[in-house]
Simulated assay, not measured.
Amino acid sequence: MIHAMIADDDALVRLGLADLLDGDPDIEVTAQAANGLQAIEQATAHRIDVALVDVRMPRMDGIAATTRLRALPHPPKVITLTTFDLDEYVYNALAAGADGFLLKDTDPAEILRAVHLVAAGSAMLHPAAARRVIDRYHAANQPRTTTARARLKRLTPRERDVLARLARGDTNADIATHLAMRESTVKAHVSRILTALDVTNRVQAALLARDAGLTP
């Protein structure tokens, strides 16, 4: 069972997401929050596997909340929600440790898929929005390129192959198929990659790979 939390200041959005998630037999909405501070309190009081966090909330926004959630002793995975695919805060949310982001008008089936993927350790980014947000900020942050390329030198050639597929959004199963590897081997490579690159999740690894020019 995946224990989920919904953090959004719009009561109707919370209700709609709760109905959607509770309709999945493998997901249980364990907690809800109307702002970032409540999200931290709920995640501290309950076991939360995946938190769906709105970017714009009162008292504490989704970016700050994501940072605090990821710093908890038993941190939940975080999916950032936003109404705007070019919201300037989305990139910062991913950098803060979010495992992905979705637009609020994302197809319900994709939202459920995202919760399952993120709970299993993968990432889920809205494809079109992710591409534009990353491109926009990559251009404004060229110094990142030098740092990113230096970190990539810590990886073996095989690890770079795995990272390239990961940065394209492939799941562990996809990577195993493309690179003719066992899925368990892929998981081991991903774990070593995260450690070597000094990042906390797949999204940050993917951003670093793109900053380094490993993927187009």
Results as ranks from 00 to 15, higher is better:
residue 40 I to M: 11
residue 73 P to I: 05
residue 130 A to S: 14
residue 81 L to C: 04
residue 13 V to Q: 08
residue 142 Q to V: 15
residue 192 R to W: 05
residue 32 Q to R: 14
residue 187 K to C: 07
residue 95 A to L: 15
residue 21 L to I: 08
residue 51 A to Q: 09
residue 156 T to P: 02
residue 178 H to N: 11
residue 83 T to E: 14
residue 169 G to Y: 04
residue 100 G to S: 05
residue 63 I to K: 00
residue 125 L to P: 02
residue 215 T to C: 10
residue 155 L to C: 06
residue 127 P to R: 11
residue 83 T to L: 13
residue 202 R to D: 06
residue 108 P to R: 06
residue 50 V to C: 03
residue 203 V to D: 01
residue 119 A to V: 04
residue 176 A to F: 10
residue 138 H to T: 13
residue 6 I to H: 06
residue 167 A to Q: 00
residue 144 R to Y: 13
residue 206 A to V: 02
residue 59 R to W: 11
residue 121 G to M: 07
residue 113 R to M: 10
residue 164 A to W: 02
residue 136 R to W: 10
residue 22 D to N: 15
residue 96 A to S: 12
residue 58 P to H: 09
residue 55 V to E: 00
residue 81 L to Y: 06
residue 136 R to K: 15
residue 4 A to R: 02
residue 45 A to Q: 13
residue 9 D to P: 08
residue 183 E to R: 15
residue 96 A to L: 08
residue 20 L to H: 05
residue 42 Q to W: 00
residue 65 A to I: 02
residue 179 L to G: 05
residue 173 A to G: 07
residue 63 I to N: 00
residue 124 M to L: 10
residue 84 F to S: 12
residue 110 E to C: 03
residue 123 A to S: 15
residue 141 N to H: 15
residue 126 H to A: 14
residue 174 D to N: 13
residue 189 H to Y: 15
residue 143 P to S: 12
residue 87 D to F: 05
residue 140 A to Y: 11
residue 164 A to Y: 03
residue 162 V to W: 03
residue 184 S to G: 12
residue 18 A to C: 11
residue 104 K to H: 05
residue 203 V to H: 00
residue 29 V to K: 08
residue 160 R to I: 09
residue 170 D to G: 03
residue 56 R to M: 12
residue 89 Y to G: 14
residue 134 I to T: 13
residue 99 D to S: 11
residue 102 L to P: 01
residue 192 R to I: 08
residue 6 I to W: 04
residue 215 T to H: 07
residue 19 D to W: 10
residue 165 R to V: 04
residue 5 M to W: 06
residue 79 I to Q: 04
residue 83 T to S: 15
residue 173 A to C: 04
residue 66 T to W: 01
residue 93 A to W: 01
residue 216 P to E: 15
residue 144 R to C: 04
residue 111 I to S: 01
residue 150 A to R: 13
residue 126 H to T: 12
residue 213 G to H: 07
